[in-house]
Design a protein around this nucleic acid. Structure first.
Length: 201
DNA sequence: ACCCTGATCAGCT
DNA sequence: GCTGATCAGGGTA
């Protein structure tokens, strides 16, 4: 792998905006992971906001503070990874210090390192490589070891990407047992993008 | 549409 | 120390 341009991560103050705005602002940004195997990256096409103490669907509901949720109480821009069943999911810590909010990255559009992603996912189907929160972490090799890093420096970064075009919002996915919170329109995605995990409101 | 996999945490026992 | 629930994915039917 050669001739891949050095990436310029977004500055720390990019992350210092209200969580719902950040969730939308992340659409079109480039998510990059550097490893010894090479670089893989993709445009973020789908996100979900988790609003902390008042959000029944958030791990930090009621200010729940454990070893796992601790990172969310930090200032924004930290990496929050956690394991769901057999898959690792990646979140951007949001909200000011002591406000445990986060944005889940649910889908990306592959950009660099296509061969690497296919190898890691053991498949060739481009459309299915990164169209889900557990799929993209496997394709980029984002793991629990990334927990607590910052998105502003290697090996895991978020950089300027492309303008997202039309953005749609709707209910979040997979949080059926969360009372009223399940109906909040806190999922954002790029309209008509084929790498969104599900195209339903 | 069901079945399996299985890290982490809360709430028990 | 155990059990059920959780922000999935892949396989099989």
């Amino acid at each position: 792998m050669k001739d891949i341009k050095p990436y310029a991560p977004l500055p720390e103050d990019f992350f210092q905006q209200p969580t719902l705005l950040l969730a939308e602002a992340l659409l079109g940004c480039l998510l990059i992971k550097e490893t010894e195997e090479g670089i893989a990256s993709g445009y973020i096409v789908e996100t979900e906001a988790y609003m902390g103490p008042e959000d029944r669907a958030a791990h930090s509901f009621g200010n729940r503070r454990t070893k796992r949720t601790e990172i969310m109480f930090n200032e924004p821009g930290f990496v929050y990874t956690y394991v769901m069943h057999t898959h690792c999911l990646v979140n951007v810590v949001s909200g000011p210090k002591e406000k445990p909010e986060a944005v889940l990255i649910r889908g990306i559009e592959p950009v660099d390192g296509l061969d690497l992603m296919k190898k890691r996912r053991k498949m060739d189907d481009l459309k299915n490589l990164t169209n889900g929160p557990g799929k993209l972490t496997k394709a980029l090799n984002i793991t629990i070891d990334d927990y607590g890093r910052r998105f502003t420096s290697p090996p895991l970064m978020i950089a300027k990407g492309i303008p997202p075009g039309k953005v749609t919002r709707g209910k979040r996915i997979g949080i059926d047992n969360s009372g009223d919170a399940r109906n909040y329109p806190w999922r954002f995605w790029i309209a008509e993008n084929p790498y969104v995990s599900r195209n339903r409101k």
